[in-house]
Amino acid sequence: MSVIPSDPVIVTVPDIRESAARERREKLSAFLRNWQGVLGLVLVMMFFISAIFAPWLAPYEPNTMDIPSRLSPPVLDHIAGTDQLGRDTFSRLLYGGRVALKIAAIGVSVSLAIGLLLGMIAGLGPRWLDNLLLLLFDAVRAFPTIILALATVALTGPSMEMVLAIVIITSIPQYARVTRTATMSLRNTEFIQAERSLGASTIRILWHHILPNVIGPLLILAAMDVPVVVSVEAGLSFLGLGVLPPTASWGTILNEGYLVIRNAPWMVVAAGIPLILTTLGFTFLGEALRDIFDPRMGKGR
């Protein structure tokens, strides 16, 4: 007869799985009990759906002019009124969401990827490289976003690509800093030391051990970064430094509305609402996720 205790093995494996599943269920129910998180999720879904399906949801073409019914107040045919050229503001806001989504998606994912890479290099690399990167991050952060945008626009002129570049450059340091701190605290732990003594390559350690540990906080940070990115786009476009008319973006619609604020005040009101709902949604969602998955992170802010 074998003396290997087979029973405990059979018992423990499903036990671990079950406890992981239970933990997942607990986190889900904790999230569902958090009304701000649920509201945030709903608003975020609304943002994605309205932006992706804008061509099907919009009652009018965003750039079709209808001069006779220009500057119409909100009526049944135009629920958010029309602008100076008779274009339907509601349809334009839907299309504006596409610009916001595009900038947020590309801006956040690219800056997260670059920040992750630079943070790992700073955390694992030699001391001088770490110091140099930190100095660079500080230098980038020294430019208030709008000031950096103004300096860049002075040279390149306004465009959507310029807005993307600004958003990416200003977002990289925060992702890099979080990654760097996590990498540094992990690199001297026993399991990494053990892995290294077994001959694992740096790439393998980064991919299998550091990445899974740092990706959670980074994604929460990304959710909190979306409102910033979306407001930067809207703000720059409002000032004429970003997306240019006739492209519909929340910023350009605000700009056009601001010019007619005395005659058609509903336009700046309507253009602000999707912006607020989106920033609120991502903020609520990000904070709920942070409270559930990483309670320590909340203390610092």
Binding site: Y258, I261, V268, G272, T279, L280, T283, E287
Partner: peptide, 23 residues
Amino acid sequence: SVGTIAVPSFLVSIWAILIFAVN
């Protein structure tokens, strides 16, 4: 606090002008 943080300052400016200066 979440509400005031979520509204971008330039939107506050525009809406403040609308309410307190125009209306």
